[in-house]
Nucleic acid binder design. Structure first.
Length: 353
DNA sequence: TATCCACCGGAATTTATGGAAG
DNA sequence: CTTCCATAAATTCCGGTGGATA
């Protein structure tokens, strides 16, 4: 059923970016000065998850690169330190500085940058108050493309100078909305053509999927993939309505699983504990962790972490939508019990597993 | 209302990590 | 190889919060 799985990957760039012509044009215009050696305009991009904010930027930068190289750095800024943001920016115009060169030195190097660099600051929701702005503000050559979920919230929470920079004249704001059913079906169509066996699906089904995912392209693409997988498991010669009906859940689950897989060992242990309980108060969670830790970490190259650090890791699990908390002080609840933990908890007293 | 308790999360401080120089 | 020294990661410390209880 699936002939080319790559077209369903999150980082797959389609040849044509359907239904974003206006946005591509605006972004191109903003970055154009860089082609002539001048500083590009700043851009603030906002929109809900999965509507193609990152893809828009990657696509547009790629297009510009065909005319002339635009030095750019793409940085996922969620939780990034000043050094982790500065280094790739400098790396865009020269060698990437080593991790042990002082921030002071990085800042000095940044001041000496004269050719235009576009710094794409993705996942910038919490970046408004970051000290990185002390160095990026009003830079003669380095411009920014800030990607966030809600532009108004972001600007409202930003310190005045940052807000001024991102609302001044010549700054471009792009608000990406959800796709309509037709638009999203147009996006799914070429993927089906390239990634699936011929006549595995049809327009009506693609529209059904587009409708079911409320205009979010990433979900739509993952749902199409899941529907195809289900169809082949069930030995259907083509995707059927029942496959689509079950695909939403599978798609959501595979996204969660991928999230879980990307996390390090500590998170796996915590997830396993919450999963086992289904629902657990922070206090008992920590107790169990301590009880299980000596055996669960045996033979692993990492060592159990403190309670404070576990709190950080639990928020990460929450951000990744693996675990949730209904009220502020409420218990921690597993989001999808069918997403099984990657590791087994070991405890010699109870002898699990 | 006053007090206790469990928990949260910011900030200071310590430890781990890994390039670079000797 | 060892030492040095920077960042990054983790721990320690602690004030604050909100809910429960008397």
């Amino acid at each position: 059923m699936i002939t080319d799985p790559r077209v369903f990957d999150d980082d797959h760039l389609p040849r044509e970016l359907a239904h974003r012509d206006a946005e591509v044009a605006t972004l191109s215009r903003a970055l154009e000065p860089a082609l002539n050696g001048e500083r590009a305009d700043d851009v603030l991009i906002s929109g809900p998850r999965g509507v193609g904010k990152t893809v828009l930027v990657r696509h547009t930068l790629g297009r510009l690169d065909r005319h002339a190289d635009v030095a750019h750095a793409y940085i996922r800024t969620l939780g990034a330190t000043t050094g982790q943001i500065l280094r790739p920016i400098l790396g865009a115009v020269g060698p990437t500085p080593a991790t042990n060169v002082p921030i002071e030195e990085l800042v000095a190097q940044l001041r000496d940058v004269n050719e235009p660099v576009v710094a794409v600051l993705d996942e910038a929701d919490d970046l408004h108050a970051h000290s990185i702005w002390d160095h990026l503000q009003e830079h003669r050559a380095v411009s920014t493309v800030v990607i966030t979920h809600d532009a108004d919230d972001w600007l409202a929470a930003a310190p005045t100078p940052v807000r001024d920079q991102l609302t001044g004249t010549g700054v471009h704001h792009l608000q990406l909305g959800r796709y309509t059913v037709n638009e999203l079906a147009d996006i799914l169509e070429p993927r089906a053509e390239q990634g699936l066996r011929a006549s595995a699906t049809n327009r009506e089904q693609l529209e059904r999927i587009a409708d079911g995912v409320a205009g979010r392209a990433r979900h739509g693409i993952q749902t199409l993939r899941a529907a195809a997988e289900l169809a082949s498991e069930r030995e259907h010669s083509a995707i059927q309505t029942s496959d689509i009906a079950d695909a939403y859940e599978r798609a959501a689950r595979s996204i969660r699983r991928a999230n879980l897989d990307s996390l390090p060992y500590h998170h796996q242990v915590l997830y396993a504990l919450v999963w086992e309980a289904g629902k657990i108060s922070p206090g008992t969670l920590h107790d169990k962790y301590e009880r299980v830790a000596p055996d669960t970490y045996r033979g692993v190259d990492v060592v159990p972490v403190s309670e404070r650090q576990r709190r950080n890791q639990l928020t990460k699990l929450e951000q990744y939508n693996l675990v949730e908390r209904s009220e502020k002080k409420g218990p921690i609840v597993i989001v999808d019990e069918k997403v099984k933990p990657k590791i087994d908890l070991q405890n010699e007293v109870y002898g699990r597993n």
